[in-house]
Amino acid sequence: MTAPSPRDDERLTAYLDGEVDPAERAEVEALLAGDPEAATVLEELGAVRAALRALPDVEPPAGFLDGLIAGGGAEPSPAPSAGGGPIDELAVRRARREGREGRPRSRSRSLVGSVAAMVAMAAMALVFVPAAGATVPPVHDFMVRHEAMASGGPTPASTMPMEPMPMDQADAMGGIAGMPELDGMARAHVYTAGPTVHVVYEHDGKMVSVYRQRGAVAWNRLPAGGTTMRVGDDPAWELQDGGASAIVVERGAEVFTVVGAGSPDMVMGAAEALPDSDPTLADRVRRVLDVAARPFSL
């Protein structure tokens, strides 16, 4: 995996702003589909863009505009010291500042950061999210794949093709780094497909699958019938389908899908055992902006 080129980076910014033509859009989307690092860059640039666009209006000092209006916007007199309306003072103030004898410099902070301002920021930020690069876990596909493995049958050809990886090789390559340790269960199999990792845990006939993908969840594109929830502090979503259940958890810049059959508690336990991750820039911006109980939108 290589870092996106500077040219690619510029295209990501233009893509965020809707300033690409159809051909360039297709190129960017192809890049995002094949390069998780580009998706991360896009997400972080999108977070910066959202934060900028959520900056509140700035209140002028009390009386400032009224004073200008009362002064009438008269042209400055040739000799600023002759006095006049507030606009006449501009050259005087500038000259004073340059001469280091003007009024004390303002140290006032902008009137932002209040709870009301942050709520307004959050409300604005909700629409500024880059959904490009978002991840839609193929939940039903993952459930079918898990069910086939649990029953000892072949993996249906319709499911995502994944390559098995020997456990020792997975360990050596870090392929299972960041995957949870589950009480009483051992990792039995590891499969990969690009950046997607599938680890199968087994014990005494019970089996749980944990799938890991990169990105942020496109919550509104998950299958119908699920319910949103939280696992710890992280946004999550649960689907019960027959005797099987799946839980999707977004943690940091990764998306985990936990699948199991027979006991929803076992699946929830596996979800709760997911390892912590360092929050990304986008996560941290999201947490600041997301004060309006809209957990799944940045």
């Binding site: 200008l68 003072e89 501009l90 103030r93």
Partner: peptide, 15 residues
């Protein structure tokens, strides 16, 4: 990025 400079700029703009 500064209130005093912003005030100067607003005055210039309105002028």
């Amino acid at each position: 990025g500064r209130h005093d400079e912003a005030q100067d700029l607003v005055q210039e703009v309105l002028l």
